[in-house]
Design a protein around this nucleic acid. Structure first.
Length: 763
RNA sequence: UCCGGCGUCGUCUAACGGCAGGACAGCGGAUUUUGGUUCCGCUUAUCGGGGUUCGAAUCCCUGCGCCGGAACCA
């Protein structure tokens, strides 16, 4: 336990940790999963569910399930039920189950409050006009002519909107933000629209419905959500989220954080496209085993454990990413390997007569359900063996390729859990098709064939329909590109086989999981009826033999792994002749003056000018600072520190004189870079004089060789292992040793001197 | 083009100024009555250019690239 390194935290957990540390929410962590009930949940939602419920679990908080049902025209109770079922199936229990529609009255009251505060108004622009007034991403919008309606008029109109006095689209309630905002979401976002539609829960009680941006943040507030986690495409909405809440409620209030939604190779994950696949009958329904929906995956044989492991493996970050579907497959295999009993099934039977087994003789073999290397597994079943058996057609080759371990004329192979047989005779029909093998059983127990194949007894085997599922799309990214994603549907995504399975599975019930040895993992489909078994292939087993064959015989059709088109040159790098890219952006006049007058580097000049530090810099120089020292101090160190703390120039409690003093301390060697940085931090915090700070804090750089030598010796002795590795050739450890030295001296060692000394001592 | 976000092995994801690590994929080997599993080993990465620093994936500047944003959808 102690040697498993803690899993590194994602950025959300870092944030929450910080909140817990600071007591921002009194230690509370309340999250929510807020789907709109207009479709089935898919694996992308699973990522969000695992995140939100997982966070609540981990921090001892709570996670609500909330139907974000503010659009009466798209929502349906069928979806509500499926969402609840899927969340439960995934293994999570919500603290509360809510509907945004339950909050309609409260939301309405908040809207009136906003109006009374003069922060919302009723706008009577048509939809098209509103769009026109909004401007574009590059041009600011214009204020609506209705923007200055009085509070009373707004209240009156809004109440009449509620009362149903106006037709759809006649008016909207809008936030009074900023029509010239760079963020389009802030250009007086609509909050309520008139929609005299029947809502599946509130019926005809309402003729106005709140929009997402208004309903969501306030629903979070009503439920006491602390961390409102959503996907990246809502980043622009966060400003509005904050605006609305700040206008209506005090801190601590909910805050929104965004992470990258899930994308997976060979699949599409948009509700619109999924719906289209269902309605276009490209699949049999939302729960078609090829669908990335949770109901589809469930029917396919995926387990909640596997999906949770997947969610854990992909992590949470803000980088747009596409996860390899192979990782998902790896997660199911890993889980199923532990829990699926092994049974034998022949998908494409070839008759084999065991010539030295008597007609009518039946040998019953006991076969364990799990191999020895799956210690969690147990149990066994009986396997009847008699004169006629069925083997997989592809386990026999008349002319075996190199490395063949299976049956061939004159060759031997072991039957799984049973005997070794030798192929004595191959029988073909008129068309030259192999129709039967005549084999003899070897009972000496001395044979050690290379291969073991699966089989079933012909007389005892049970018929079963086996549905071989594969990826729904045949290209990695069906979602992008010029063509419609549906043109990439994989015609082989479902292949149905009439198979023979061993008798023990005859009574298996829907949902039961198996491994058909050497084939893959399968589960019993709900369509199974007594005497009519149906199996779905969850995922095939890895097949290194097939892979090797593919590599050796790049057959004509789908040749090599996509012949990389002549090592395409990176679009960005070389080729483009733009050596002058460095200073593409012109220096501002102010920066240019700085550069020319003081010989500053363009970088420093630019930073100083852009950060409004010009006056401070000039003052420092006027007080006697050397321009280049002051330039670095101001342009690099001070600027960095100010940015880190989001400080403005006005908040600085020191001026040019102090800066000049600092520069002098650096120039005369009293302060090294590290210490100078410390002094700046101190200056930023409480002002004062650099000299005093140096005095009080003992910030005096150690440049004395004797003292440095002693410190180095101590570090060398303490880090003998590192030293040995360094001397063994790992010269990169030099930096680590310097680091240790700096740590040991409290950052006071003269780094340059100490570094030289250290190098000498290391030899 | 304006605003916002993001660039680390083939793919995800760590490293919060000090040894670029893990998982999946790939390759090789050992074990194996599943060409499965397991185990061992290997290959491969900080978008480009500057700067600060003894030391930069990390901080600053700059260029480039990708994603999101102009619904009375969520």
């Amino acid at each position: 336990m102690t040697d498993t390194p803690a899993r590194p935290k994602d950025f959300l957990r870092e944030i929450i940790d910080e909140h817990c540390r600071r007591g921002t929410y009194g230690g509370r962590v309340v999250t929510r999963f807020p789907p709109e009930p207009n479709g089935y949940l898919h694996i992308g939602h699973a990522k969000s569910i695992c995140l939100n419920f997982g966070l609540a679990q981990q921090y001892g908080g709570a996670c609500n399930l909330r139907m974000d049902d503010t659009n009466p025209t798209t929502e349906d109770p069928e979806y509500v039920a499926s969402i609840q079922a899927d969340v439960r199936w995934l293994g999570f229990q919500w603290a509360g189950f809510f509907h945004a529609s339950d909050y309609f009255e409260q939301l309405y009251q908040f809207a009136e409050q906003l109006i009374r505060a003069g922060k919302a108004y009723v706008c009577s622009l048509s939809e098209a006009d509103m769009r026109a007034y909004r401007g574009t991403v590059t041009e600011p919008g214009r204020p609506s002519p209705y923007r200055d309606r009085s509070v009373d008029e707004n209240l009156d109109l809004f109440r009449r909107m509620r009362a149903g006095e106006f037709p759809d689209g006649a008016h909207t309630l809008r936030a009074k933000c900023d029509m010239s905002a760079a963020n389009m979401k802030m250009r007086d976002a609509p909050l309520y629209r008139i929609r005299r539609a029947h809502h599946y829960r509130t019926g005809d009680a309402w003729s106005i419905y709140p929009l997402y941006d208004f309903a969501h943040c306030l629903s979070d507030q009503i439920e006491g959500i602390t961390h409102s986690i959503c996907t990246l495409e809502f980043e622009n909405n966060r400003e509005l989220y904050d605006w609305i809440l700040d206008a209506l409620v005090p801190e601590p209030r909910p805050h929104q954080y965004e992470f990258a939604r899930l994308a997976i190779t060979y699949t599409v994950l948009s509700k619109r496209k999924l719906l289209e696949l269902v309605e276009g009958e490209h699949v049999s329904g939302w729960d078609d085993p090829r669908m990335p929906t949770l109901s589809g995956l469930r029917r396919r044989g995926y387990t909640p454990e596997a999906i949770r492991a997947f969610a854990d493996a992909i992590g949470v970050a803000k980088t747009n990413s596409v996860v390899d579907v192979a990782l998902l497959e790896s997660c199911v295999r890993d889980d199923l390997n532990r829990r699926a009993p092994r049974v034998l099934a022949v998908l494409d039977p070839l008759k084999v007569t065991l010539t030295n087994v008597a007609e009518g003789e039946v040998e019953t073999l006991e076969a364990p359900y799990f191999p020895a290397d799956v210690p969690e597994g147990s149990g066994a079943r009986a396997l009847p063996l008699s004169r006629t058996i069925l083997i997989e057609r592809e386990d026999f080759a008349e002319t075996p390729p190199k490395g063949w371990h299976r049956l061939a004329p004159g060759g031997e192979v072991r039957l799984r859990h049973a005997v070794v047989i030798r192929c004595d005779e191959v029988i073909k029909d008129d068309r030259g098709e192999v129709v039967e093998l005549r084999c003899s059983v070897d009972r000496t127990g001395e044979k050690k064939p290379k291969g073991t194949i699966h089989w079933v007894g012909a007389a005892h085997a049970v018929d079963a329909e086996v549905r071989l599922y594969d990826r729904l799309f045949s290209v990695e990214n069906p979602d992008r590109g010029d063509a419609d994603y549906k043109t990439f549907l994989n015609p082989q995504s479902l292949v149905i086989k009439l198979a023979k399975v061993e008798p023990s599975v005859a009574s298996a019930s829907p949902g039961a999981l198996f491994q058909f040895e050497r084939h893959g993992f399968f589960c019993v489909d709900p369509e199974t009826k007594a005497g009519a078994l149906v199996f779905n292939r969850t995922v095939a087993l890895k097949d290194s033999w097939a892979k090797q064959q593919r590599a050796e015989a790049p057959e004509k059709g789908q040749s090599k792994p996509a012949p990389k088109p002549e090592a395409a040159p990176r679009p960005a790098a070389q080729s483009t002749p733009k050596p002058a890219a460095r200073s593409a952006r012109e220096l501002s006049p102010e920066a240019a003056v700085l550069r020319d007058r003081h010989g500053l580097s363009p970088d420093d000049a630019r930073v100083i000018a852009d950060s409004g530090l010009t006056a401070l810099f000039e003052a420092a120089v006027a007080s006697g600072a050397k321009a280049d020292t002051a330039g670095t101090l101001v342009g690099s160190e001070l600027d960095r520190a100010m940015k880190a703390e989001a400080r403005g120039v006005d908040s600085l409690a020191f001026g040019g004189r102090e800066l000049a003093e600092l520069a002098a301390l650096v120039d005369d060697g009293t302060l090294g870079a590290k210490l100078a940085r410390e002094v700046i931090a101190e200056l930023l915090k409480s002002g004062g004089s650099p000299k005093q700070i140096v005095e009080q804090r003992g910030f005096r750089q150690v440049s004395d060789e004797g003292a440095l030598g002693a410190a180095i010796d101590a570090v060398l002795a303490a880090k003998a292992d590192l030293v040995a590795r360094y001397r063994g050739g790992e010269t990169k450890l030099y930096g680590v040793l310097v680091g240790e030295l700096m740590k040991a001296t409290g950052g006071k060692a003269n780094a340059k001197l100490a570094g030289d000394l250290l190098r000498r001592k290391l030899g």
